[in-house]
């Protein structure tokens, strides 16, 4: 079985994430980045499947040169090979364009042997749109089996549990399919020392847009179908009164709530 995990390089959530004032895009240069933590769950799902059967796992990232770090982390966790689509023209791409590049890269990976499973995270931790996996399914004409809180792959295909807004659903599809997993699906492993050493010898390919057959005019800021008109930093919340409980803390709390007319 051949599995491709889509991994995104994102600004670190614990750093001061901001925008590039020049073009209102997410600042991916001056803010330290990392592999989106939610994609670690997709990697874990792929590795678990690979361990249970015989599977080859490739990590695929579309992003700036620094995004190689996301691929590297995936390799350290245990993925077999990496593909990084890096091209200046990708800067400022919207989800529609990103999904195009991913779809074309997946098709190219498929030339060396059909891909059975495309695994994604439930959302990127920066944009957090949760649309790319659905867009990939649409573009590749594959079953969309997304927001999996648990995944099983067997003879018949893939079966997931999806916790919807009002109901829990069990969804089944045959392979190949696009599957996205939530942070409920598993507990991602940490790279082991052995894994870190082994990663250095694993194959990584870096492709340009022309390698995957995408016209630069179809992607990037110029082709984006959406634009950020303005961004403003929210004023930080002010710290209010903090009291220490000396046997009266609960009553003090209700005193505050009463003052604010909540009780």
């Amino acid at each position: 079985m051949k599995i491709v995990v889509c991994v995104k390089y994102v600004p670190d959530a614990t750093a001061d994430r901001t925008f590039d004032p020049g073009d209102n895009t997410v600042d991916r240069v001056n803010v330290p980045g990392l592999l989106s933590e939610l994609d670690e769950h997709a990697i874990e799902a792929a590795l678990t499947l690979a361990e249970a059967g015989d599977a080859e796992v490739t990590a695929l990232a579309v992003g700036p040169p620094d995004a190689a770090a996301a691929v590297k982390k995936a390799l350290q966790m245990g993925v077999d090979a990496g593909v990084h689509v890096a091209d200046d023209a990708v800067h400022g791409s919207d989800a529609v364009a990103t999904s195009l590049v991913l779809a074309k890269a997946l098709a190219k990976i498929g030339e060396e042997g059909p891909v059975d499973l495309v695994l994604c995270g439930m959302a990127s931790t920066d944009g957090g749109m949760s649309v790319v996996p659905a867009m990939l399914a649409e573009r590749l004409d594959l079953p969309q089996v997304t927001f999996a809180a648990s995944v099983e792959v067997g003879e018949g295909g893939v079966r997931i549990r999806r916790d919807g807004e009002t109901a829990t659903e069990i969804v089944e599809a045959s392979l190949p399919a696009v599957v996205s997993v939530t942070d409920q699906a598993n507990e991602p492993r940490y790279p082991s020392f052995k894994g870190i050493m082994a990663a250095k010898k694993k194959p990584v390919q870096t492709w340009s847009l022309s390698d995957v057959g995408v016209d630069p005019g179809e992607v990037g800021l110029g082709a984006a179908r959406t634009a950020v008109a303005s961004y403003t930093q929210r004023p930080p919340r002010q710290q209010g009164t903090v009291v220490t409980d000396d046997g009266d803390g609960g009553r003090a709390l209700v005193g505050f709530l009463a003052e604010q007319k909540f009780v």
């Binding site: 919207d94 989800a95 529609v96 999904s99 749109m129 949760s130 649309v131 790319v132 996996p133 659905a134 867009m135 399914a137 649409e138 573009r139 969309q144 997304t146 927001f147 999806r162 919807g164 807004e165 984006a224 179908r225 959406t226």
Partner: peptide, 18 residues
């Protein structure tokens, strides 16, 4: 989750911004 995914697929079908 569902609303966003419908929107995503629709954006591809209509070649529109989401």
């Amino acid at each position: 989750a569902e609303g966003k995914e419908i929107a995503g697929r629709l954006a591809i079908k209509l070649d529109a911004g989401v």
